[in-house]
Design a binder for these strands. Sequence first.
RNA 1: CGGGGCGUAGCGCAGUCUGGUAGCGCACCACACUGGGGGUGUGGUGGUCGCCGGUUCAAAUCCGGCCGCCCCGACCA
Length: 568
Amino acid sequence: MLKAMRASQTLIPTLKETPAEAEVASHVLLLRAGFIRRVAGGLYTWLPLGLRVMRKIEAIVREELARFGAQEIQMPVVQPADLWRESGRWDVMGPELMRMRDRHERDYAMGPTHEEVVTDLVRRTVDSYKQIPLNVYQMHTKFRDEIRPRFGLLRAREFLMKDGYSFHLDEASLDRTYRDMYDAYTAILKRIGVDFRVVEADAGTIGDGESHEFQVLAESGEDLMAYCPNSGYAANVEKARALAPEPSDERPDSLGKVATPGARTIADIAALLRVDPARCIKTLIVRGAEGPWIALVLRGDHELNETKAARLPPVAAPVTFADDAEVEAATGCPIGSIGPVGLELPVYVDRSAAAAANCVCGANEEGFHLTGVNWSRDFADAEVVDIRNVTEGDLSPDGCGELAFARGIEVGHIFKLGDKYSVPMRLTLQDGAGVETALIMGCYGFGISRLVAAVAEQCHDDDGIVWPASIAPFNVHILALDYANPDVAAAADSLYDACIDAGMDVLFDDRDERPGVKFAESDLLGIPHRITVGARSLARGLVEYKRRADTERVLLTPAEAVSRIASD
RNA sequence: CGGGGCGUAGCGCAGUCUGGUAGCGCACCACACUGGGGGUGUGGUGGUCGCCGGUUCAAAUCCGGCCGCCCCGACCA
């Protein structure tokens, strides 16, 4: 990568106005600062400055992974369908998997991830247990045909990801590598200098084992995390366990039935009967994995956690809600008046709803609700499960305090895969005792291109991006306010050379632009250190130094400015 | 895929309701002034009005279909 560039000879197409296509800060700023350009939905071209940021992240990732013995390889984007059929994912993956056919009518996938290819590699190349554990990774373009690409680079269809895979004979070995990758990701994000949080995560369809996400904190993040300020507990809300509440010691009232004409929602019922929504019970009808329909019961003030619900074996994954007609067909009663008491469907009740006393719920008769409803007496057949989202203020699962919420952008995700791929793809080795054993695997993803946007999302102000020095496209931005002035040009040129000699990455704005343009664009680009060379202060032999993150400006000699930056 | 919004010059927009010469700001080119926070003036360049079809003497404008983009939802190793 070139250390130094002149702005007059570099493609930096800045925009004064926000393009209509962009909404979120990172997308707006990366477009305006000339880092990226959109080609089509979810597809972007990386321009020189954007690419420099991405390359710097790559370099940091490589260095940190090398410390833990991970080996870099590169696998093809285009992958034969046969491998995907072997793992079973050819049929399981939906349209998100981009499929294509070659001239011989053979099927291929555009790799969204590389478990199949890497598993195939290892079974062909590793002959003895003495060659493992093995930890390999690549940094490569991934393709996922997202339903809705959005937020610029944050949810693109084609993106750069570091994906790593490890292979082990036993859990203890997998645990060690998993921990190493956990530590490596932590080191990478610390070194880059973003605020982040590591949270327990749901492994989704990729595995059933332990899993952690690395979330860059940002208000605009798509992920919601629950954490306990008093302890280390932190989990994606998808995953965060809701504790079982103490059962109520209230005496159960007798069941009553009241007319509730026209009331359809919990809010309607709570207002009409003047009860707390926490004393209302809602019943959701979802598609069953085999049978027709399943009822899920929650307290009125709680939300269904679809990830948890989808993990109930009788519930079809992903969770699919019955529509109005299907509810009526399944229960004989329209949405708004259904309830768990006497319902002729399998019923699962959330722990909190089961613990609530004397509740209101639908009577399974249009326009009527029951009062004084108690799980233990009135629908005790229902199995008690954890299927709700935790809420702010809930007791932390470790009992150390109350949960608080934060939003984040997922930039890393590590999984223990177990034998999910090694068994169907017959990846086995003889262990030391000569017993043929399926290997177990770990998988470690890190979104390089997404991190570029996540950092911009977190590190910006009203004027533009404020890059951390670790990944800024350049470290120093020299502005020659009037390059046509021979004195300014001479001073700026020699300052430029001095920065190069000092080993700095420097962008030199030598263009014939007005000062205001140069200042505004400099703020937009977000290079950490700015040195302004103008005729006015140069008359006293001085230049102006300013950090992008600060408001303070100081006048220094050129040599002082360089050493100031060098010692930063 | 469901709901909403949008598509007119490289970018940001007006004009569409009520059919009749395609406009404004920025950018770009030339010249002059200016020169420490997106400067001023004068003169220019640049548009199949997303695409296809229909109605009409006449369509950016009305009608039908399609495509694309953005937002919300669903979805998401």
